[in-house]
Design a protein around this nucleic acid. Structure first.
Lengths: 136, 136
DNA sequence: TATTAAATGCAAGTTGTTTGCAAGTAGAAT
DNA sequence: ATTCTACTTGCAAACAACTTGCATTTAATA
């Protein structure tokens, strides 16, 4: 993880390493508050400031390590950007399931070709919202 | 427009009618600030309070007249919910183009079938981000 | 036209996030 | 190992986008 940061011109500070670790252990996207709570549990880092969390999330996002996800919440959720997939979110209990679909990606890749105004598409955000079996 | 509101149990106040009118004339999604600026231009409504805009947007969203859109901005954008489509957003100049694709919708409709945890999907949000011809 | 639940204006509060600045620290250079 | 310096952090204050409480007004119905 240290190299991952240094390669991109970032110093590998304890807070950053811990935050990366928190993300790598999380099975679903998390927000600044959750990162803060988790990092606060580590004795050596218990005094980490919230501003540090926000700044770190921004840095890790802009160098491509983290990806920002739209979950229709009023805070920003992130996850490791290592693989491309989307989410199904339960609007009642917030359960999240990942999914991917290559056919879908193919169609999305072709959309811009048909556009008159757009030249290229770099990213897309796709999230499904519904009810999980428990809540339905 | 009056009936549209009354049918759903809302009073057709001048502010609401004006807000609906602003949306029906806008060719792209807009946020509370833009609605506020536009309604302020109308002499009779120039004193309309921002809280009213926020409350109205919420009401119109929850009764299904407006739809909330994720454009990766830090404010909420809305548009009339009359037809289903998605957006391509230029990350540089914010130009927005609508698109729809029936094949895509079909695939999205089938996703939940393959899911172990989810029973049904009610909505989805899909936005593409890239560069328009001008900015590319 | 009188009634009343719903809508509004105003001011203050909240939430999530950002910023300025002084002090601390990782990593490069000695 | 020590020094240097740009990058990081903590802290407190500022911000933006909303939300809320409450007194007043008003659209819709009777």
């Amino acid at each position: 993880m240290k190299e991952m940061l240094n390669e991109r011109g970032y110093k590998a500070t304890p807070a950053r390493l811990a935050i990366l670790d928190i993300f790598s252990k999380s099975k679903f996207p998390i927000n600044a508050e959750i990162v803060y709570k988790n990092i606060s549990k580590i004795k050596a880092l218990r005094k980490t400031n919230e501003a540090t969390i926000y700044r770190t999330l921004l840095s890790l996002e802009s160098c491509g390590i983290l990806k920002r996800i739209n979950l229709r919440k009023n805070s920003a959720y992130f996850e490791l950007a290592d693989d491309h997939h989307h989410h199904i979110v339960c609007t009642k209990c917030n359960e999240i399931e990942d999914f991917e679909n290559s056919e879908l990606e193919k169609i999305l890749g072709g959309i811009v070709v048909k556009s008159s105004k757009f030249k290229n598409v770099r990213e897309h955000s796709l999230e499904l919202f519904g009810l999980c079996r428990m809540c339905a």
